[in-house]
Design a protein around this nucleic acid. Structure first.
Length: 805
DNA sequence: TCATACCGGGG
DNA sequence: GTGTACGGTATGA
C-alpha cells in the first residue's frame, strides 16, 4: 500500500518516484481492475516480447475530508497498521499529514464496502438519501477509477523498459454506406495486422446476416491477432460507436477485449460519442485488456504546439506529414458506397491506404502519449486523450502526495481575482529590412522555476519539483535523441519523451491558471505572478534591445521582432541577443530564434516575413483566410514579396497583371471562387428566401443545383447578375476546363482586389504613394516614372500601441 | 453590426 | 464521471 516518506525536504529519490512511480515491473501493456480488488495485468516481457497475463489483488481506496460518515461502522472501522491483515468487511483508515482537506485515506477489501459505508453515513448526516459518492462533491471525497487506484497504490506504470515498436498494434477502419449507424450499415472493414499485412473484410450482400457476419469476422480477426493496442483515426468518434450500434441492432456479441464481456464497456469522456442512454453525456468505449487509441487525439495534441496542420482529417494530415503514397486512392465520403458497387477494388485500395496511414500516423505522433504512460498512473488510452493539466499533472500530484503521506487539498474556487494575461506590443507598422526574432523558450515554466512560483496550497512543493524534473528529463531526452542514430527506435523514443515532457511542462502554467476550481492546486495569484513577470521580462527585453540600437517592431508574450541598422551583420545581431540574454535570470533563456531579410508588419499578430532563402511566410488572419479567393491570395503573395524587396514596380506589376488577367478572363473561375459551407437545407433556405436572399444559395440555384447536403462545402463566385458554383472535391478543388464558362463579374473582382487584397499593403507606403501604386489602370503611363521615387516605409505613429490580452 | 455558440472528425 | 485550446465560422439579438 502507500508507504510513508518524510513529508519535508523531499529528496531527489522522492522526486523520481513522483515522476516515474516506484515499482519496477516491466512491460505492462494493459491494466484492468475491478471494485472487488482484483486487477488483471497484461505484460510483454521486454526481452522476448512474450505476453504474460497476471492477476493481482489491491485494496480499493478513497480520500475523505472527515471520518464522521464512517462512525456508524463502530468496530468495523479500524486504524490501519502495516502488519495487520484486515477482515473482509472492515474499513481501515489512516490520517495523512499536512493541512490538506482530503486527509483520511480509507480502504477496504471491496470498493462497494467503502462506498456503501460512506453513503450510509452521509445519508444519515445530511438527512437525505445520498446515492453516489460524487454527490458529496470533490471537496469532500476523491475517488479514482479502479485501474488508477491500482496504479497509484502500487507505483506501477505502463511500458517500463518497452519501446513503442514492441507494442502489438492493430488498425481497423470501417467503410459504411453512410454516417448514421441507425440507418446505414457497414459493408467493409480494412484491417492492418500487427505484422503490417493488410486485409479487407467485406459483407457478402446487403442483408442483416451478411453485416452480422462481417462484424463476427472483425471480432475473430482481432482475437486471433491479439493486439495490445487498436488504433484508428476518429476511432472513438466514429468506428466504435458505429460498430457498437450495429452489433446491438443485429444482436451480435461485440467482444473486442481480452476479457470477455457482452459488448464494450464505456467511460465518460469529453470528446466521445453521445451516450445511447443519455444524449447529454459523452462516452468512449473500453475493451478491457486492450488500449483503444484514436489518432485524432494525437493529431490535435501535435497541432496544439506546432499549429501547422491544414486540418485534422486523416488524408490531409497523412499528406502533410509525408505518410501518403503518391498514388493514394481518394474517394469523396458520400461516394464510397456508390463507388464500391461499381469498382470495389478502388474502395479496397482506399480503405487499405487508410489503415496504413493510421499506422504511420500513430507511430509518428503517438510516442508522446506512450511516454506519458510511463510516468502517470493512468491507462495509456486515458493519457492519449487527456488534457495535460488535469489529465497528467493532477494524477502525478495525487500520487506524489499519497506517496509522501500528505493530505491533498480539495478543489477550491478562486477568491474572485481576475486573471491577467500576456503583453502584446505593436511598435511599428510597414516594411522593415534585416529583421531578427528573439524569444524565450518555455517562458512561463521558466519563470515558475526561476522565481519558485507554485500553488500556495502545494505544501509539498510537488508541482515545482515535477516541473524541474520534467525540464531536466527533457533536456536529457533531447541530448539522447541527438546521440542516437537517425530513424532508430532509440532516437524515436527519446524524441517522444522530449515531446511529452514539453507538453506537460508547458501546461504547468495552465494548471495554475485554470479558473472555476477546475484543478486541485489552481492559484490565480500565482498565475498572475507568472504573467506579471512575463510582461516585465518582455518589456525589459524590449528596453534593453532598444538601447542597443535596434528598432522594435512587435513583441508578443515571449518573443520580439526587431530590425537592425544597415551596417550590422549576423554577428552583431547575435551579440545583442546574447547581451540581453545575460541580463535575465539563469533559467530564463532568451534565444536567437531567426533572422529574416524583411518583414511587413500589418497589425498585431498579422505580418509577413521574407527569409534570406527567399521564402515568404504569412501569419495572421489578415493574410490567411479559408474564404479568400485564390486570385487575391496569389496577388497578395506576389505583391508582398516585391514590397519586401522594395521592388515597387513589381508591386504595381502584380496589381496590373491581376487586373488584366481578370479583364481578359484569363483566370479560371476557380481562382475567383470563395469557399463556403452550406448550412441550410434546400427546403430551409426556400422558406426564408423571400425574406432574405443569401448569395451562396442563390449561386447554387443559379447553377441548377437544387439539392445539396447540409454542411456541404462548395466554391461560389459572382456573375454579372447572379452567381455560380464550382464544386469541390475534398480539399482540392477540381474543375474541368471545358465546362468553365468564366462568366464571372470582372468589375466586381477588380474592386475586390483593390478594396480587400491591396488594402493589406496599406502600411507599406505613405497614403499618397499607396494611391499611386494602386491607381486606376488607365492612368498607367503617367505613373511609370513616379514609381521610381516610391519607397516602402516603416512607421511608428502610435506611441507604441500597447494592448493587453 | 457585434456578441455568443459551436465546431473541428468520420462514411 | 469529463476537463477547461483556439481560431474560424454560423447564428442570433
Amino acid at each position: 500500500m502507500l508507504t510513508s516518506a518524510p513529508p519535508v525536504a523531499p529528496s531527489t529519490a522522492d522526486e523520481d518516484e513522483w515522476l516515474w512511480g516506484w515499482d519496477p515491473t516491466p512491460g505492462i501493456v494493459s491494466v484492468w481492475a475491478e471494485p472487488d480488488g482484483t486487477a488483471m495485468i497484461w505484460r510483454r516481457e521486454p526481452s522476448t516480447n512474450a505476453l504474460l497475463r497476471e492477476s493481482a489483488r489491491f485494496k480499493p481506496w478513497l480520500l475523505l475530508d472527515q471520518l464522521e460518515d464512517l462512525a456508524h461502522l463502530g468496530q468495523r472501522l479500524v486504524r490501519a497498521h502495516a502488519t495487520q491483515q484486515p477482515a473482509p468487511m472492515q474499513v481501515t483508515y489512516r490520517e495523512l499529514d499536512g493541512p490538506g482537506a482530503l486527509r483520511f485515506l480509507v480502504s477496504a477489501e471491496h470498493a462497494n464496502t467503502l462506498s456503501t459505508a460512506v453513503l450510509t453515513g452521509a445519508t444519515r448526516r445530511l438527512g437525505h438519501r445520498v446515492g453516489h459518492l460524487r454527490e458529496l462533491g470533490p471537496e469532500a471525497v476523491l475517488v479514482l477509477p479502479p485501474e488508477e487506484q491500482y496504479l497509484v497504490s502500487t507505483g506501477r506504470t505502463y511500458f517500463r523498459d518497452l519501446t513503442f515498436d514492441q507494442l502489438v498494434r492493430l488498425q481497423f477502419d470501417l467503410e459504411t454506406t453512410g454516417l448514421d449507424a441507425e440507418r446505414e450499415r457497414m459493408f467493409m472493414v480494412a484491417v492492418r495486422l500487427p505484422s503490417g499485412a493488410t486485409q479487407v473484410l467485406e459483407a457478402a450482400n446487403e442483408s442483416d446476416a451478411a453485416e452480422a457476419q462481417l462484424i463476427k469476422q472483425l471480432v475473430d480477426t482481432i482475437h486471433s491477432a491479439d493486439p495490445d493496442v487498436i488504433e484508428n483515426h476518429n476511432l472513438h468518434g466514429f468506428d466504435l460507436p458505429f460498430l457498437d450500434t450495429r452489433a446491438r441492432k443485429l444482436g451480435v456479441s461485440l467482444s473486442l477485449g481480452r476479457i470477455h464481456f457482452n459488448g464494450l464497456k464505456q467511460r465518460a469522456a469529453r470528446r466521445g460519442a453521445p451516450s445511447a442512454t443519455d444524449a447529454k453525456r459523452r462516452v468512449r468505449f473500453v475493451a478491457p485488456g486492450r488500449e483503444l487509441i484514436d489518432t485524432l487525439d494525437a493529431v490535435r495534441r501535435y497541432d496544439f504546439s506546432t499549429r501547422e496542420l491544414p486540418g485534422h482529417g486523416l488524408k490531409a494530415v497523412a499528406r502533410h506529414l509525408g505518410l501518403a503514397g503518391p498514388n493514394r486512392e481518394l474517394i469523396r465520403g458520400d461516394q464510397i458506397y456508390e463507388t464500391y458497387k461499381r469498382d470495389p477494388d478502388r474502395v479496397r485500395r482506399y480503405a487499405t491506404a487508410d489503415v496504413d496511414e493510421v499506422a504511420g500516423l500513430a507511430r509518428m505522433l503517438g510516442g508522446a502519449a506512450f511516454a506519458l504512460a510511463r510516468m502517470a498512473p493512468r491507462r495509456y488510452e486515458r493519457l492519449a486523450d487527456a488534457g495535460a493539466a488535469t489529465g497528467v499533472i493532477d494524477p502525478l500530484l495525487v500520487r506524489a502526495y499519497l506517496r509522501a503521506g500528505m493530505a491533498l487539498p480539495a478543489h477550491a474556487d478562486g477568491d474572485g481575482t481576475t486573471h491577467s494575461g500576456a503583453a502584446l506590443h505593436l511598435f511599428a507598422t510597414g516594411v522593415a529590412q534585416r529583421v531578427v526574432k528573439a524569444d524565450v523558450a518555455s517562458l512561463y515554466p521558466s519563470l515558475m522555476r526561476a522565481f519558485r512560483i507554485g500553488p500556495a496550497r502545494d505544501h509539498l512543493g510537488a508541482l515545482l519539483a515535477l516541473v524541474d524534473r520534467l525540464v531536466e528529463t527533457r533536456l536529457a531526452a533531447k541530448a539522447n535523441a541527438r546521440a542516437a542514430p537517425v530513424g532508430s527506435a532509440e532516437r524515436y523514443t527519446h524524441e517522444a519523451m522530449s515531446a511529452a515532457m514539453k507538453l506537460v511542462v508547458n501546461s504547468a502554467y495552465g494548471y495554475l491558471a485554470a479558473g472555476g476550481g477546475l484543478t486541485r492546486f489552481a492559484d490565480v495569484h500565482a498565475a498572475n505572478d507568472v504573467t506579471r513577470r512575463g510582461r516585465e521580462t518582455l518589456d525589459f527585453m524590449c528596453r534593453e534591445l532598444a538601447t542597443r540600437g535596434v528598432t522594435l517592431l512587435e513583441a508578443d508574450t515571449d518573443g520580439v521582432y526587431f530590425t537592425v541598422p544597415e551596417s550590422w551583420t549576423e554577428i552583431n545581431e547575435r551579440r545583442v541577443v546574447t547581451e540581453v540574454a545575460a541580463l535575465l535570470p539563469p533559467l530564463v533563456q532568451l534565444e536567437f530564434e531567426g533572422r529574416y531579410a524583411a518583414m511587413l508588419s500589418h497589425q498585431p499578430k498579422n505580418y509577413a516575413l521574407l527569409g534570406y532563402d527567399g521564402i515568404l511566410v504569412l501569419r495572421g488572419v489578415a493574410f490567411r483566410s479559408s474564404r479568400a479567393e485564390p486570385y487575391g491570395e496569389t496577388f497578395l503573395r506576389a505583391a508582398i514579396a516585391c514590397a519586401l524587396r522594395n521592388d515597387v514596380v513589381g508591386v504595381r506589376a502584380a496589381y496590373l497583371n491581376t487586373v488584366q488577367a481578370l479583364q481578359a478572363r484569363a483566370l479560371p473561375t476557380l481562382a475567383v471562387s470563395s469557399r463556403v459551407r452550406l448550412t441550410k437545407s434546400p427546403s430551409r433556405y426556400l422558406e426564408t428566401r423571400h425574406v432574405r436572399r443569401e448569395f451562396a444559395y442563390e449561386a447554387m440555384l443559379a447553377s441548377g443545383r437544387t439539392s445539396w447536403r447540409v454542411g456541404e462545402r462548395v466554391r461560389v463566385y459572382r456573375t454579372k447578375h447572379r452567381g455560380g458554383v464550382v464544386t469541390e472535391f475534398d480539399d482540392e478543388a477540381v474543375v474541368s476546363e471545358q465546362t468553365d464558362a468564366r462568366d464571372y463579374d470582372v468589375p466586381y473582382y477588380i474592386r475586390l482586389l483593390r478594396t480587400s487584397f491591396a488594402e493589406r499593403l496599406v502600411t507599406a507606403f505613405t497614403p499618397s504613394d499607396f494611391a499611386t501604386v494602386f491607381a486606376d489602370t488607365q492612368q498607367l503611363p503617367l505613373f511609370v516614372s513616379a514609381l521610381d521615387d516610391i519607397r516602402t516605409v516603416l512607421s511608428s505613429p502610435m506611441q507604441a500601441k500597447i494592448a493587453s490580452r
